[in-house]
Structure formats: C-alpha cells, structure tokens
Simulated scan of single mutants.
Amino acid sequence: MKTVSLKIDDDISMETEKILSELKLPRNRYINEAIDHYNHIQKRLLIEKALTKESFLVRENSMKVLKEFEDLEDGD
C-alpha cells in the first residue's frame, strides 16, 4: 500500500468528517473508495472520448459504403 499526503479544502474536509461519523467508516477506507469510484468514471470518459474520435475517423468511409449500398438498391 502506498502512503499519500494531500491537502483537502476545509469545507470538503468538514463534510467528509460528518459523513464518516454517520457511516462509521475509517477515513482511509472512504478516501480509497472515493478514488476508486472516480477512477471508474474517468476510465469511462476516456473510452467515450476514444470511441468518439474513432467514430469520427471512420465516418466518411462509412458514408461512402452506405452510398454504395443505396446505389445498389436503386439499381434493382
């Protein structure tokens, strides 16, 4: 396990302490779970960004293929 030192804004710290007292959860566990959750969100956003980029790159080619299929259907 890695030790990390961080500075937390006072208002965030106070809110966190209130929540921790109600949950009866150690601060360390709470922060680890919060970071894990945030990492999952960021991974999804990175995947979404990559998919959007890839989709944009193949869009022109996909439209050409679609046009070719439409032309084939019109020829029948």
Rank of each mutant, 00 (worst) to 15 (best):
S13F: 05
E15N: 09
H40A: 15
M63C: 14
E68V: 03
L66G: 03
K49E: 08
H40P: 00
P26G: 05
L6P: 04
S21W: 01
R44N: 08
R44D: 05
K24D: 04
A50Q: 10
K24V: 02
Y30E: 00
G75Q: 13
N32A: 10
Y30H: 04
S55T: 09
R29Y: 00
E17P: 00
S62N: 15
S62K: 14
I41R: 05
I8C: 11
L66N: 12
E33W: 03
H40Y: 15
I8W: 04
M14E: 11
H40E: 14
K64T: 11
E17K: 11
E73T: 04
R27M: 01
L23R: 08
L66S: 10
M14A: 12
N32S: 10
I41M: 06
T16K: 04
E33N: 08
D10Q: 15
N61H: 10
H37D: 06
R59P: 00
K49F: 03
Y38D: 07
E60M: 11
V58N: 11
D11W: 07
I47N: 13
L23N: 07
E54Y: 14
I31C: 00
S62V: 12
G75A: 15
K2N: 13
R29Q: 02
L23S: 06
D11G: 09
L25Y: 00
S13R: 09
K7E: 12
S62G: 15
V58G: 05
M63N: 15
M1S: 14
E22G: 03
L72W: 09
T16M: 11
V4L: 15
D71L: 05
H40S: 15
L6T: 14
N28W: 04
T16L: 07
P26E: 08
H40G: 13
S5F: 12
D76L: 02
K18C: 06
E60P: 03
E60A: 14
D9F: 03
V65T: 11
K7A: 12
H37E: 07
V4Q: 14
K43H: 01
D76A: 02
E68R: 05
Y30V: 01
M63D: 15
K24P: 00
K43L: 01
E48L: 12
I12K: 10
L66M: 11
K49R: 13
E60D: 14
E17I: 04
D71T: 02
D10N: 15
G75I: 11
I47C: 09
K49A: 08
L45C: 04
R59I: 05
K24T: 02
D71N: 05
I35N: 01
G75T: 12
N61T: 09
I19F: 02
D36L: 10
D9I: 08
